[in-house]
């Protein structure tokens, strides 16, 4: 199948790679079908690309790339893949990621949802770069 995205242009995808988010993304509830796109220029970031709105994509990153112990603490023993949503700011070193409500993909069912973790100490604006830690609320 083919799809055109504003940022990634036209790309082909296999139906079996489609990620269903039955509850959508908070604030973008109407969209359910996504692809996880790996772009060479933006590794280690990944993209959650909507297959229903060609303008819509989210930057994400695997927690182990940037914070230690996150998955072990919150998803211990679960067969899931976790991604943190990243808000890119200008200048780039003020960019943040949301530790409170990650995208969690059930590896067996291949279904994802944006969860809200119960731990209220988790910030939604954790600095991507540690030297900008003072920008966090």
């Amino acid at each position: 199948m083919k799809f055109v995205n504003r940022q990634f242009g036209e790309f082909e995808f296999d139906e079996k790679h489609v990620l269903e988010l039955p509850e959508g993304i908070i604030g973008f509830g109407e969209f359910r079908r996504f692809l996880i796109v790996d772009d060479e220029d933006t590794q280690p970031f990944r993209w959650l690309v909507s297959l229903e709105d060609s303008d819509l994509s989210f930057a994400m990153i695997a927690p182990e790339t940037v914070v230690s112990g996150y998955e072990g603490t919150y998803f211990k023993g679960e067969n899931v893949t976790v991604f943190l949503f990243v808000a890119l700011k200008e200048p780039v070193d003020g960019s943040t990621m949301n530790l409170r409500s990650p995208l969690v993909i059930d590896n067996a069912q291949r279904v994802g949802r944006q969860v809200i973790l119960d731990d209220e100490t988790l910030t939604m604006q954790f600095p991507l770069f540690s030297r900008s830690a003072e920008l966090v609320e």
């Binding site: 990634f8 933006t42 790339t65 230690s68 808000a87 890119l88 700011k89 780039v92 944006q114 770069f129």
Partner: peptide, 29 residues
């Protein structure tokens, strides 16, 4: 925050990506 994440443009993400590769800020809790 989701709206902010959806505004992330490939050019700035790629800038952040190369900074991150250099920075290796992986040790914080």
């Amino acid at each position: 925050e989701n709206i902010e994440a959806s505004k992330s443009e490939k050019t700035s993400v790629s800038k952040a990506a190369s900074m991150l590769r250099q920075h290796k800020a992986g040790t914080q809790g």
